[in-house]
């Protein structure tokens, strides 16, 4: 009831109008509304949102580039390390072989030295032996002389005939000569 009354009021209050009627007031309001909406959204929405989106896209781009760079760096470091490692290994091998060579040389040298020393010792020992021999022989000679003198003394005391004496002395001398 109320509704039909309203409809009546509308149709009588203003001409009902057609679909294609243009109302200037509505155009004015549309333009005003739209321009205000555009300005407000531009300030409060589009500017911050679009700049945030751009910033995010830039950040993603940067991150990707940084990751790419980091990967390249890491690869370079790995390659460097490997090269260094190979160099170090080479060096170690060289050092080991040098050490071996040196120790070989040292061994030979030491062997030769010790041999020479031994020879020297042997020589010295033989000289000493010779000397000791000579000494012992000399001592013996002295002793023999003493003994001979004593013996001759005894003999002289026991029988002092000329003939006997003579042969004894001669024999004695002969024996000496023999020795």
């Amino acid at each position: 009831m109320n509704y039909s009354l309203l409809a009546f009021a509308v149709s009588s209050g203003e001409s009902q109008g057609g679909l294609l009627d243009v109302s200037p007031g509505l155009i004015v309001w549309t333009v005003i509304t739209f321009i205000f909406l555009l300005l407000i959204l531009m300030k409060f929405a589009w500017k911050p949102i679009l700049s945030s989106l751009n910033e995010r896209e830039k950040r993603i781009q940067d991150s990707l580039e940084a990751a790419e760079k980091a990967k390249a760096d890491a690869e370079k470091i790995v390659a460097d390390t490997q090269a260094n490692l190979a160099k170090a290994e080479e060096e170690a091998r060289k050092i080991i072989s040098q050490g071996r060579e040196y120790s070989e040389k040292l061994k030979e040298q030491m062997l030769a030295e010790s041999k020479a020393q031994a020879q020297k010792m042997v020589d010295e020992a033989s000289i000493e032996i010779e000397r000791k021999n000579q000494e012992a022989f000399n001592a013996l000679k002295d002793q023999v002389v003493t003994i001979a003198v004593e013996a001759s003394e005894k003999i002289i005391r026991e029988n002092l005939d000329k003939e006997k004496q003579k042969t004894i002395v001669q024999r004695y001398l002969q024996d000496l000569a023999k020795n």
């Binding site: 109302s23 007031g25 509505l26 309001w29 509304t33 909406l37 929405a45």
Partner: peptide
């Protein structure tokens, strides 16, 4: 001389603008 009455469609445009804002 222009009929600037706030009509139903104007109100709905404003509602739309408010929602968007």
């Amino acid at each position: 001389g222009i009929d600037l009455t706030i009509t139903n469609h104007v109100v709905f445009m404003w509602i739309a603008a408010a929602i968007l804002f």
